[in-house]
Design a protein around this nucleic acid. Structure first.
Length: 509
RNA sequence: GGCGCGUUGGUCAAGGGGUUAAGACGCCUCCCUUUCACGGAGGAAUCACGGGUUCGAAUCCCGUACGUGCUACCA
């Protein structure tokens, strides 16, 4: 066991960063910070066919937005560089060859067509296992069956080959998972996985084990989908470095689709109208953009919060947690075993709560950008700040500040006449003509003063103040929504208030 | 098909032999406000099924069902 807690997040840059990925990073981060350990980000780019240019940079952008800063990574440096697997290629081969030497692995020359034929044959025979394993390896084209001379002849002639692990059947492999407790795997069901590919790149199986050892990883968190291949990793540790050095594992539950069945995927987001990626992901080839939580108007605090409580809770009724609180309260034992369906409605609720909780200073720059992208420029920062304070409790997503706040920047484009017409008459018309004059004469323009003036005239004219108030609201806002009407009047100012009443009067009369 | 993992309201979930089975989201009603929202008070809705073990099971055991994952020279 290593002395210091060292955890790692190891994404493969093949596209956007989805919810499950961010949650894995988050749990890694919380665990590392809780125990004063190191949080390492290593890039798993051994699959050149699926590697996507720009994806690595994108991943770091997402981490940056979330505030999950690595202690060691490609970007941040560290004592165990390089942190990109493609740059560690040679060291993997060395370990693979060592395994062969120790008779724990072997060379295999089977072509893809031969492998396919093998599976077809097994299927035809009604076998319930289509794996390349102890049952069939002696009938395949590998160094186990071939003589040493035949093997070296093939290698020297440049025949492509892979290195496969040699799994000894009939063994029970014990294994402890931090979330699931003690488990056991029967090696009879474990196949001879490829460790080193024909192109010289390692597969994930070899690379994680070697890197975890070399980078002194003490705890490893990954998705539940890795559970079936855990015995391969345990075996590799046993063969290469000894089980005592193996990190402790935690297999995280999956995040599932809200409807139907299955793991949440990018397609579900498109189909159901919510994001599954942390930030906008632009496909470099098709240029399709997949929406991200950030761009949709989520706060990073809310995003992290909702992810943390998907599959974990601290046992109390608390649901809103800051990152610091999470570091303090996180415990791996309280992570669930079962997958959780993602609920976008609840996700929005978290954002709403965080918008209310945080001072607007934390996000006013982003809101300003939203206004500007909608053509509202020359915004006064102090005024925007004031407006945001007035409407924050009715905003769920950041763009709501635009829809809710536009009335403070522009006169209504249209009016809810259906609400006004039934109440409209000459008395009301006269009232509003008169109120303009009274407003003009007010020395102080404050909500309470405006309200008093407004109600006094109503009493004098013997008109119900409530009805007038509704009409005033439609005059100023265009519809029956928004904060307290006299506060709106105060905020937009005397001139604008009078102007808007005059505009509306012209239309209603 | 084989193997693994899981299963408390629609969703997230607490609870790990004796509880009126918490709480949250969403939904509904009411109050506040002559608006919407916030806030407050209520409501409907749950232990997958079948067997055990036990005085007693949502909790322990077995089976079944269902869900989900893996079964690539992908991670």
């Amino acid at each position: 066991m290593f002395n210091k807690v060292r955890v790692r997040f190891a994404p493969s840059p093949t596209g956007g960063l989805h919810l499950g990925g961010v949650r894995t990073v988050l749990f890694n981060y919380l665990f590392a910070k809780k125990y004063g350990g190191d949080f390492i980000v290593r890039i798993e780019d051994t699959d050149q066919a699926r590697f996507v240019a720009g994806a690595e940079k994108y991943i770091f952008n997402c981490l940056d937005w979330c505030g999950l800063v690595p202690d060691e990574s490609v970007l941040h440096g560290g004592p165990y560089a390089p942190y990109r697997q493609s740059e560690r290629k040679e060291s993997y081969r060395q370990y693979a060859e060592q395994l062969v030497k120790d008779d724990n692995a072997y060379y295999a020359f089977d072509t893809p067509a031969e492998l396919e034929a093998m599976r077809e044959k097994l299927k035809a025979e009604g076998s319930n296992s289509l794996q390349y394993d102890h049952r069939i390896r002696m009938s395949m084209n590998n160094s186990l069956r071939l003589s040493p001379a035949e093997t070296s002849a093939l290698i020297e002639s440049g025949t492509p080959y892979v290195i496969r692990i040699k799994v000894t059947p009939g063994e029970m492999l014990p294994f402890t998972d931090m979330i699931r407790g003690d488990m056991e795997f029967d090696t009879n069901n474990v196949d001879d996985k490829v460790l080193l590919k024909a192109d010289g790149m390692p597969t994930y199986h070899l690379a994680v084990v070697v890197d975890d050892y070399l980078m002194k990883i003490s705890h490893a968190f990954r998705g539940e989908e890795w559970l079936p291949s855990a015995p391969v990793h345990v075996l590799l540790w046993k063969y290469l470095f000894g089980l005592d050095e193996m990190p402790q594992w935690a297999h995280l539950p999956l995040i599932l689709k809200p409807d139907g069945n299955g793991k949440l995927s990018k397609r579900d987001g498109d189909r159901l109208g919510f994001p599954v990626y942390a930030m906008d992901w632009a496909d470099p080839i098709t240029h399709d953009i997949t929406k991200g939580f950030k761009e949709l108007g989520f706060l990073p605090e809310a995003f992290l919060n909702l992810l943390a409580v998907l599959g974990w809770n601290d046992g109390t009724e608390q649901e809103i947690f800051s990152l610091d609180e999470l570091v303090d309260k996180f415990s791996i034992e309280r992570v669930h075993k079962g997958g959780a369906k993602f609920d976008f409605e609840k996700a929005k609720w978290f954002n709403h709560e965080w918008i209310k909780k945080l001072d607007v200073e934390n996000y006013e720059q982003r809101v300003k950008e939203i206004f500007e992208s909608n053509g509202i420029t020359n915004i006064d920062d102090v005024y925007l700040h004031q407006v945001m304070g007035l409407i924050k409790e009715r905003c769920t997503l950041l763009p709501d500040f635009y829809t809710q706040g536009l009335l403070f920047f522009q006169s209504p484009a249209s009016y809810d006449e259906a609400s006004v017409r039934p109440k409209w008459n000459d008395g009301k018309k006269e009232y509003f003509s008169d109120i303009i004059g009274q407003f003009e004469n007010l020395a102080t323009w404050e909500a309470t003063v405006i309200e008093d003036t407004f109600k006094l005239l109503a009493t004098q004219k013997n008109i119900k103040a409530g009805e007038l108030q509704m009409i005033l609201r439609v005059m100023l806002v265009g519809n029956k929504t928004g904060p307290a009407v006299f506060v709106i009047a105060e905020t937009i100012g005397k001139t604008a208030t009078i102007k808007r009443i005059e505009n509306a009067l012209a239309i209603f009369s």
